[in-house]
Write a protein that binds this DNA or RNA. Sequence first.
DNA 1: GTGAAAGCGCTAACAG
DNA 2: CTGTTAGCGCTTTCAC
Lengths: 319, 319
Amino acid sequence: MTNIRSIAKLAGVSVSTVSRVLNEHPYVKEEKRQKVLEAVEQLNYIKNANAVHLSKGKTYSIGVVLPYLNLPYFGEILQGIAGEALKHGYHLQLFQTNYDRGAELDAFHRMQMKEVDGLILTSRSNSLDVLAPFIGPNVVFCENVYDPTYKKVFINHYEGIRNGLKYLYSKGHSRIGLCLNRTFGTNSEERIRGFYDSSEAAGHPVREEWIFNDCYHLQDGREVVKAWEQKKEKPSALIVTSDQVSAGMVTEAGKRGIRIPDDLAILSFDNHPIADAMDITSFEVPIRKVGEESFKLFLENGNPQPVLLETTLLERGTV
Amino acid sequence: MTNIRSIAKLAGVSVSTVSRVLNEHPYVKEEKRQKVLEAVEQLNYIKNANAVHLSKGKTYSIGVVLPYLNLPYFGEILQGIAGEALKHGYHLQLFQTNYDRGAELDAFHRMQMKEVDGLILTSRSNSLDVLAPFIGPNVVFCENVYDPTYKKVFINHYEGIRNGLKYLYSKGHSRIGLCLNRTFGTNSEERIRGFYDSSEAAGHPVREEWIFNDCYHLQDGREVVKAWEQKKEKPSALIVTSDQVSAGMVTEAGKRGIRIPDDLAILSFDNHPIADAMDITSFEVPIRKVGEESFKLFLENGNPQPVLLETTLLERGTV
DNA sequence: GTGAAAGCGCTAACAG
DNA sequence: CTGTTAGCGCTTTCAC
């Protein structure tokens, strides 16, 4: 074990001097500096990070809590976090939950154990009541949690959906369905609320049977089309909260001779490259930016303003 | 700071007894056990992981080195690693490199600093010569590195490509191009080797201008189609090493009235759900299994056998 | 500028 | 069964 002590001995200085050199503190005579560096070289010394972490009470690593790793949405948000983290010398620790509450709690537990300095929750499964005891300024939510003391960055899903409906109405649609990934969670609830509010205001009450749920993947979109086809009364348009799902719908519709948008219009969210490629009308959702901002919030002190991000419609061929 | 010492004091026992209880070691009188547990409860004690790591010289975490996070390929491999790691109480630390050599070396540096117990290299940028000094039994490669002492799990890309060509020949194609993500790296080199070997053996020498490179994303596939269209002499079929790219090709071809497979056949790799959705003929590549096996190898002692995984053709509509 | 020494919090060998 | 004690390796205050 070549540690700081052995190099102190070899260099003929004290451990504190070695530490100073290693951490580029000022006030070390150049001569001793060199001696230390030589010893480091000679003994092939490598700092033990765990000792540093213990001593400092910090790890310069942040945990990212996410349900799945094989969805573009989370890949993109991760990319955003990772980029920003790198700039600040932090690295990422992954806590994949599969939306399992226990797995999510484990992440908090590890934070308490100081394995990570903080946590970014990209999607949450436990209730806030359950998590409350663990939440502090080192926890960032990617949703509009109500507690004003919590750090958060979120998409304006409420307005997003409302704008979507407005757009569909302007195109003459009034029989409109909704396709969601899940029904719980703040983000989904905001979308649902926007959907109901706007629908009712416009005098087109929501038809529950036109709401599809549990749609994450391409395949799920294909199932939606099949289900849609079965219905006696069909919506003429669907708002779909993920481009992956929309892509599945478009391909399945193609196979079945369902004309998009004539038989069924699709208004999507994300603006993932697949939407561009497949000519899917989609609201751009700045997911990567959510990742970037979430890390910035983590670093900020005090009670920083929540970050609110808007969606932008990109008109293409599916509406 | 409520530490092991304070709870020892409160429980009226020694720190070692506390440690024993906390780690579920045998030989602790039930009575003291309870005392300790009560104290833990009362003081809201939480173990400091960094102290454990330092003391044990282990972190029970493994680093995953990957270039990008926003590609399904890496999402899938991560999913495989994460699942297996979870079973064994390990968690993941992410090292995203963007194929930057320095970033990759940093991962090795952190391993040396004991931040992670090991490293899984899903894709590599440095030469093995550069990495050699850092490679031990705690490093796993997802490629067929030549050194027999290195742990590795890899896809038989060589045979995969050869089988692909064989299949295309059987369908009457002889003017065949190749679409790669990159040209360096063992996996790509194996594919290229397979392509050259089979082409020459079949008497259809490779046309360099039919080899496309740097294809990772959907968009890249669209560009390939445009480039293909420009060519005076066109291949009648393309082997494409990623379904994402193939998907981009299919959509772009559709827009341009290029008939698949009549004008251009596409033989893809991955068998990502998008291939099924878009009816793309594709070799299934067990990427998730690569992730699972890589973690298992990490855990294994001695010099375990390399894991070789094969690809399986799924005939669909693009050939 | 520099060193001694007291932590950081836990583990484990050893002695009883 | 249980306690003492010596680490694990680095940081940082304090005194000189």
